[in-house]
Amino acid sequence: MEIILSIVIVFMILGAIYALYAKDLLSALIACGIVGYGLVICFLLLRAPDLAIVQIVVETITLVIMVAVVLNSTREELKEKAVVKVDGVSYVHQRYIVNVILVVVFALFLLYFFKESIYTLNHFGEHVTRMSTAYIESAAEQTGSANLVTGVLFDFRGYDTLGEATILFTAVIGILTILRAKAKK
């Protein structure tokens, strides 16, 4: 189980790296789709069919919107040379050095906290359901819903769903405001 999952995640990482280094923006978006659809396979392997359905549809719609944005542009990745030549002397670009230092500092910072927190997690597949034990045992009787995820989502944690709906509503209003070409009469 863990081995199959690791293989899928390695493919996702390769897709992500290609998405960041592709010359054409359209192929970068397709490579981003590798990551999204790989995530669908991971969700199916992890026994989360609800998430798999949502992710496969959302990924498709996101891809359509992204392609619609990119298709009218020049689609070229603007290159930034790492080594610059001035008067025959080549030296590394200053911005490139700053970037590398920034990434290394951030990665080490996050790695430290990852190393500290990984000990407190259970091993993969040996999760202990502390709070969810009550959900699993009593959700069916208390909510009457056979799908426990839906029961948790709309009954025990209804405020989450309300906040999510509000954020979606606000985002749509923002998009309509940004993309409005002319003022309304």
Binding site: M131, Y135, A139, V149, V152, L168
Partner: peptide, 13 residues
């Protein structure tokens, strides 16, 4: 565990 799944479901949208 259904709890992380319910959280991720809102986060995806």
């Amino acid at each position: 565990d259904p709890l992380p799944q319910a959280m991720v479901l809102t986060a995806i949208v």
